[in-house]
Design a protein around this nucleic acid. Structure first.
Length: 244
DNA sequence: CCAGACGTTGTT
DNA sequence: GTCTGG
DNA sequence: CCAGACGTTGTT
DNA sequence: GTCTGG
């Protein structure tokens, strides 16, 4: 699945990569080696900007925005369920009440440098693994976003779509984020497209050598920890000799 | 009609 | 909001 | 995803 | 075990 990831590229790098503009009034985003559910995350959305009078422009613009990870549907009574809505299954995202409207109208890209999975080892211990592009390029997860109006300012939230793992990644975990290749970005973001069903398929590149998988320290388990050490390769634990 | 749900994941 | 169950 | 908490009562 | 918070 995708419950923790890394986003360390600068805003400047992302707007160049995605041909977007920085939008919104949120504070500047800091590089994050431990992005966790409910935290602020950067997304690319494609929707009309508003002019000085608040009127929407006729055509949409790609915008880099900061939203909260964990989708809160517009009809929710409160925002408490967000931590459970961090992922949407590709097999059902077009039908589920919580996601189908966002799928039809509010798709986004979630830029990432890589993501973590916790590999089950058959006991209580899990080995955290870091997945990243072998050639170092950035990734774009397929996401959805939603607006929620409660007390105070409108809350914008997002979710990351998951798919069955492909290729070698299946040995780590049975689910993975839906990674979109660059040539899919435009149609995924196009608000005039209601059902880009052909894009709901796993990323071919991940099935081969495109993704590097490395064991990392369990320091990443706690969301209080951060920094580049979290993605450094370590010897996996437990090693065979510690089993006795 | 009204009331109530609406989601994902992993594990055994 | 929209669908299902009663 | 993992870590950490996990309660009741009456009253305003 | 199950829910909440990050």
């Amino acid at each position: 699945m995708c419950g923790r990831y890394v986003s360390i590229r600068s805003d400047a790098d992302l707007i160049a990569e995605f041909d977007a503009v920085v939008a919104g009034t949120e504070e500047r985003y800091e590089p994050d080696f431990n992005v966790a559910p409910t935290k602020p995350v950067r997304v690319i959305v494609n929707r009309p900007l508003r002019d000085a009078g608040g009127a929407p422009e006729p055509a949409p613009t790609r915008q880099l925005r900061v939203v909260s990870w964990g989708l809160v549907p517009s009809w929710s009574k409160d925002r408490k369920g967000a931590a459970r809505m961090i992922n949407a299954r590709v097999e059902s995202v077009t039908e589920k009440p919580a996601f189908r409207t966002a799928y039809a109208k509010r798709r986004c890209l979630v830029p990432a440098d890589g993501w973590y999975e916790w590999q089950a080892l058959g006991g209580p211990v899990k080995q955290p693994m870091y997945m990243t592009a072998a050639d170092g390029h950035g990734l774009a997860f397929a996401g959805l976003y939603e607006f929620w109006r409660g007390d105070g300012p409108t809350l914008t939230t997002c979710t990351i779509i998951t798919t069955p793992s492909v290729g070698l990644l299946g040995a780590v975990h049975d689910r993975m984020p839906l990674v979109l290749a660059r040539d899919s970005w435009t149609r995924w973001l196009d608000p005039a497209v209601a059902d880009p069903a052909d894009l709901l398929t796993p990323w071919d590149e991940a099935a081969g050598e495109g993704i590097e998988v490395r064991p990392v320290a369990s320091t990443v388990n706690s969301v209080e920890h951060n920094g580049p050490a979290l993605i450094e390769r370590v010897e996996p634990n437990p090693t065979p000799e510690t089993l006795f």
